[in-house]
Design a protein around this nucleic acid. Structure first.
Length: 502
RNA sequence: GCGGGUGUAGUUCAGUGGUAGAACACCAGCCUUCCAAGCUGGUUACGUCGGUUCGAUUCCGUCCACCCGCACCA
């Protein structure tokens, strides 16, 4: 993972641009901010919508085998019990302040060592096959130091069972010295909340850490109410929340983010999933390319078998070369029928599907393409950002795809103190505004206005000048090439439609 | 969460134990017949709380946030 030396500066410039032009703000920055949360400004919200709309249109509307869903954010706790998130997301951790090592508290074992009832101290070992012997050796060593042959028998307990008074006395496995271990701290990655006005412990619920489970728990609702037939997919766009231990890299890893997930249900035959898995990888790569991510910055990272969850058949990440390194953009997992089976057991409701063609029942398997809106946003904006040198002049430009750009067209009267120009420009502006998010700007020199639009990624500028009053043509200026051509209003509309709504 | 660094207009930077200036940006007006640079005027800042002090943006501490490493990332 080669790191670009200029990367930090590039990231800083992009973050500054996002703030300056109203794409992304630090959340609650008037109160000095809140770590891991972001607010999207007037341009950011447009771009976000464009990403989601493009995804929904291409993955749902333009396919025959997909339907949508919007499930609730606050979710029944049993959903997370069944899915495994409740257990998997809440490991208490212990830090050694001296060695800077971090341990899972339930994997760190300790014992109080005594000889004839007299306390000598504590020993600690990491969970392993030989931990009993290791602890015995350490205990006897402690005993010999104190002039005894052998320590009393002892029982190992894990660190979560330690009494708070013992934290100071248990040695760190790294240093062998006590006093450097912190109390076990819960790293519960799910946001907890309470349903109802009273804080009743029985009313605990969770903000979803992923949208996918909302799809699984509605599987029967969708198959019972729609006319879907395997293979088919359910798509969902929505916010998800994770208590990331350390959010980093701007919006790349944040605590509140938005996912676009698909659960694509397929037959359980073993020869089926590899091809469909592969198809989805290709579909998604092509989609990324279609919205303006350069192919050479996209990559595939296939998880090795031994790193997969026990139920998973395969998982391939689509990666992207961010300024801070190559990172995961989308995960495409073949999850077998683990989730439906879990919910079938957890809820007691059948999750099987009757395949009319095959005249048999089965619990479908699933391919899960899962991507973050915010990560796509960051990928797009970092890929689009350019600082160009133009004959001693500098131009900052966001080369965003017209489909993604927050403002599609700027309408500019060449000068603003000539009434007929302003009138004509405004009427064109009103006309385009019915269709797209467009912008009218009359202030300042024309070149300055072009550059302002470059910086926020507006792909087209249309300038109304004195010839426009004579023959009805306008100047169309292209953001990337900076070239201009004259075009009639009617041709302009056709051209813009082709470019903006492919 | 640990270690290091940082925190002054929107941005990039000055500066001082006696409460601050610039450039660019932005807004208004004038000018302007196609690529940021004209004229006039204007808005905007010492992250937070506390301590020391007659007085703190400045010194000290706390918290918050950001950046860089490490760890973490089901």
């Amino acid at each position: 993972m080669a790191k670009n030396k200029a990367a930090p500066n590039r990231m800083e410039s992009i973050v500054a641009l996002c703030k300056r032009r109203g794409f992304i703000f630090q959340a609650a920055d008037i109160y000095s901010g809140i770590n891991g949360f972001f607010d999207y400004g007037p341009l950011g919200v447009e771009m976000r919508r464009n990403i989601k709309d493009a995804w929904w249109r291409d993955m749902v509307h333009r396919r025959d085998d997909m339907v949508g869903l919007d499930s609730s954010i606050i979710t029944h706790p049993q959903v997370w019990q069944s899915s495994g998130h409740l257990d998997g997301f809440s490991d208490p951790m212990v830090d050694c302040k001296k060695s800077k090592n971090r341990y899972r508290a339930d994997q760190l074992f300790f014992a109080k060592i005594t000889v004839s009832g007299e306390t000598l101290g504590y020993v600690s070992v990491m969970e392993s096959e030989t931990m009993e012997e290791d602890a015995r050796k350490a205990a006897d060593k402690l005993a010999r130091k104190a002039g005894h042959a052998k320590a009393d028998d002892f029982t190992l307990r894990d660190y979560t069972e330690a009494d708070p008074s013992e934290y100071e006395l248990i040695p760190s496995p790294a240093t062998g010295e006590p006093g450097s271990l912190t109390p076990p701290r819960d790293f519960n990655l799910m946001f907890q909340t309470y349903i109802g006005a009273l804080r009743d412990e029985n009313a605990v619920a969770y903000l979803r850490p992923e949208t996918a489970q909302g799809i699984f728990i509605n599987f029967r609702n969708v198959t019972d109410s729609g006319r879907v037939k395997v293979p088919f997919g359910i798509a969902q766009i929505g916010k998800a929340f994770r208590n990331e231990i350390n959010p980093r890299n701007f919006i790349f890893r944040s605590r509140e983010f938005e996912q676009m997930e698909i659960e694509y249900f397929i037959s359980p035959d073993e020869d089926v999933w590899p091809k469909i898995h592969r198809d989805w990888i290709e579909t998604r790569l092509n989609w990324f390319e279609s919205i303006g991510l350069p192919r050479e910055k996209l990559g595939e990272d296939e998880h090795p078998k031994e790193k997969l969850a026990h139920y998973a058949k395969a998982c391939t990440d689509i990666t992207f070369e961010f300024p801070f390194g190559v990172q995961e953009l989308e995960g495409i997992a073949a999850r077998g029928n683990f989730d439906l089976t879990q919910h079938q057991e957890g809820s007691g409701r059948p999750m099987d599907y009757f395949d009319e063609a095959r005249k048999e029942r089965y619990v479908p398997h699933v391919i899960e393409p899962s991507v973050g809106v915010d990560r796509i946003f960051l990928a797009l904006i970092t890929a689009a950002y350019e600082e160009e040198e133009l004959e001693g002049d500098k131009r900052t430009v966001l080369k965003l795809h017209p489909r993604i750009a927050p403002i599609k067209v700027a309408v500019l009267p060449l000068v603003k103190n000539k009434e007929p120009l302003v009138e004509k420009a405004q009427s064109l502006y009103r006309r385009l505004q019915r269709r797209w998010n467009v912008f009218y700007d009359a202030s300042g020199a024309i070149g300055r206005r072009y550059r302002r639009m470059d910086e926020i990624g507006t792909p087209f500028c249309v300038t109304v000048d004195f010839d426009s009053l004579e023959d009805g043509t306008v100047t169309l200026r292209d953001r990337d090439s900076m070239e201009q051509k004259r075009i009639s209003e009617e041709d302009l509309l056709v051209y813009l439609e082709e470019q903006i709504d492919p």
